[in-house]
Design a binder for these strands. Structure first.
Lengths: 146, 146
DNA sequence: GTGCATGCAAATCTTTTGCACTCTT
DNA sequence: AAGAGTGCAAAAGATTTGCATGCAC
């Protein structure tokens, strides 16, 4: 399992420790790379597992660290707990930030190339700095369409 | 004040009552059309005002209704309370959904024409339905750049 | 008058924090 | 051995709900 190694490598690089909790959260995220999970769902998965263990609070702490390291991305669905999804591909290709999110099954699908680069360049010329962007397209995926 | 009339009109159209609370929240949103406010900030504004009144819980209930009616939009900033901003312009031009949001002062600025229409059409051909989208560009605005 | 909307209190849900203890390094 | 990380409990913050009362229609 290449991706878990990637997690370990990046943790080491940042002088962060490789612990049971961090490996547990990483494993769940890797196993469910197609769907963003809430901290609670991740915690439940870990509890159901025989060989993984992590406290619920540590799930939050771990996700926060993974987010800072760019290993996961955080998705906010309106009126719900935040959802996290692994952001390194199994081919170590760069993370693509733009997704379609299904309102019903929470399935997430990459959308293609970024279409905001021009907009950001224009803003930078005007004096805007530290630009980040987030594009969200939501709706019902083909499987959830009745 | 044209916009308040628009709020009243749309409430009436949906057989919802025109109440003190709803008018108070609408007024604050209209007065602060350039900045999205949290429910608490809206509540504080109302409390500071002499002639407006609304309970804090009713601010939440009212915002939820206004959102359903398309009168306001909800912005989620990571790790913070949701922010709401009026989504009808003073010229009754259609609401433009894409903004730059300043991380520091929460100033919000429209970005220009929508660049996702093509993407949405492509998805619809594939069987996706009920599509909505939300684009967020964040960073520091010129005023907040040191 | 009818019943939608409100105010208040309390519950709920998510996330964060404090602190003593544990385990990685 | 040092101190980063954890587990537990409890706090904090945002939002929702229940219910009796009030107000728009």
């Amino acid at each position: 399992m290449k991706e878990l190694e990637k997690f370990k490598e990046i943790l080491k690089f940042h002088r962060l420790r490789i612990t049971q909790s961090r490996l547990a959260v990483a494993s769940i995220l890797i196993q469910n790379r197609e769907t963003p999970f809430t901290p609670e769902e991740i915690f439940d998965c870990i509890q159901r597992s025989d060989d993984l263990y992590c406290d619920q609070v540590s799930v939050y702490r771990t996700l926060s660290i993974f987010e800072d390291l760019g290993l996961v991305s955080k998705f906010l669905f309106h009126g719900q707990a935040a959802r996290y999804m692994i952001s390194i591909s199994n081919k170590n290709t760069p993370y693509h930030k733009h997704y379609f999110k299904c309102d019903q099954c929470h399935w997430v699908e990459p959308l293609g190339d970024c279409i905001l680069l021009k907009t950001e360049k224009r803003l930078e010329k005007k004096g805007y700095r530290n630009l980040h962007h987030h594009i969200e397209v939501t709706g019902l995926c083909p499987r959830c369409t009745t």
